[in-house]
Design a protein around this nucleic acid. Structure first.
Lengths: 246, 246
DNA sequence: TTAATAGTGTCTCTTAGACACTATCGA
DNA sequence: TCGATAGTGTCTAAGAGACACTATTAA
């Protein structure tokens, strides 16, 4: 390597393409809840490689438009779902020689939680065929492109484990919800029942919700509607939900 | 984009350098414990950009040698410390337009825990000046290259938070250690005292250690030496250490 | 014997699980 | 009044903190 006198000289002579670089992209698992099932958004690839295979939505960083990595994820999410302010979290980064036939590649993986009610079924950016699939089905029956099965499995795992000690599932519901609705979401993700009283104590004592004032009515006792308190992004409990003792 | 008939045709015509790609690297925070202080390894940059500034060790993926991302991290770690089997964990990935003057860049960050006793003070791969610095000092007094202050802060945070519900600090000790030594490590990282009985109960009940049979002797009652049970990589406790109630 | 550290017994405190109980709506 | 779901009272269980106690070594 040459020894440039100043950083300015160095940068003037610098060209990324002088080096062998991996292909770097962003992929994401977008989760929503529908009819008591956790679903993930899949996209049918319209281009090689793995054309016509189902894959997690993703794409390349737009070096002009995106200022930081999360912008890429956010841009993709809006393209696919129309949701503007989802819960977005970086999960992990996968990189290797074999995962993409084009060569050494790196993908930064995010997961997003969106409310079913807020998803635009036919957003502007939709150029490819998309489909919401129950996560268990996606993992069991689909051979996703690249290593996306493994990626999805990790995202699912991360979600399940965070549900045990955070209030994450709130982001799968619309702005206002009842405690029973929230409990159901926890139960769906955890895959087991949760004791009502413990659940309410836990959530209410955490002081992260406020009553909206309205009630959800039906042919029974109306339920209070709650919303996330302003400024509360997430909450960590000192203990995990343990589930039934039996 | 052209519409290739087969994936093979597509791949034959494909060239990474036809696209604008970010610069992708791996950086790491290597932690060890010395004289009751948590230290991190810093490297003085011998090349532009940020020449002569201190930075976290890191570098580019070797598309030939490295099969997966972790290989890059592991290779760097061995180069700098000579430690073969450290605790290595991916922390997060930083990417943005501004963080490197060469342009859009992505760095995958790992943290490693090594035992002070196993660090090679002058490993083969040492081409640059390196220095072990107490983490608090590195964060307070050093203006590290790029966004490495922020990266180091996040690694430190991840470490502190995992110490509250895992047995991570074991990896900062040599193979055999006493419970009191382990407790001290927890205390140093947490920044507060830990109650002896609770600590021992917690660790012993987790069933992750075994007695080595040997004892640590001194001018007092000898202490049992323990080692991590085979096959145990890490342990998650159902509750966090809470620290003094006072 | 004493200083020093290893290691234990046992009480309290916090928060989760269990489960029976009461409350409030529409039909 | 009844079916259904909302919401509570209160006991038990488990694991953390507090703290005093005993044990074992070298000097």
């Amino acid at each position: 390597m040459q020894d440039y006198a100043s950083e300015k000289d160095f940068l003037a002579a610098y060209n990324v393409h002088d080096y062998e670089v991996p292909l770097t992209s962003v992929d994401m698992a977008i989760f929503k809840l529908r009819e008591q099932q956790l679903e993930v958004l899949l996209v049918k690839r319209s281009q090689h490689p793995s054309r016509d295979k189902w894959a997690l939505p993703g794409g390349f960083i737009d070096l002009k438009k995106d200022r930081v990595l999360e912008d890429t994820a956010h841009r993709k999410l809006v393209e696919k779902t129309g949701v503007k302010s989802p819960y977005l979290e970086q999960v992990a980064t996968f990189g290797g020689k074999q995962r993409d036939p084009r060569g050494w590649s790196v993908t930064v993986v995010y997961f997003a939680l969106v409310a079913h009610e807020e998803v635009d079924v036919d957003p502007k950016g939709a150029k490819e065929e998309t489909r919401w699939v129950p996560v268990t089905e996606a993992l069991r029956d689909y051979k996703l492109a690249f290593d996306h099965n493994e990626i999805l499995r990790l995202c699912r795992e991360r979600l399940t484990s965070k549900v045990q000690y955070t209030a994450l599932p709130i982001h799968l519901l619309p702005e206002e919800f009842t405690l029973t609705e929230l409990q159901k979401v926890f139960e769906v993700i955890l895959g087991n029942e949760v004791e009502k009283k413990s659940f309410r104590r836990r959530i209410l004592d955490a002081d992260i919700l406020e009553e909206s004032g309205a009630m959800r009515t039906g042919s029974n006792r109306p339920a209070k509607l709650y919303r996330l308190k302003r400024g509360v992004e997430n909450h960590f409990f000192p203990r995990t939900i343990e589930g039934p003792r039996s």
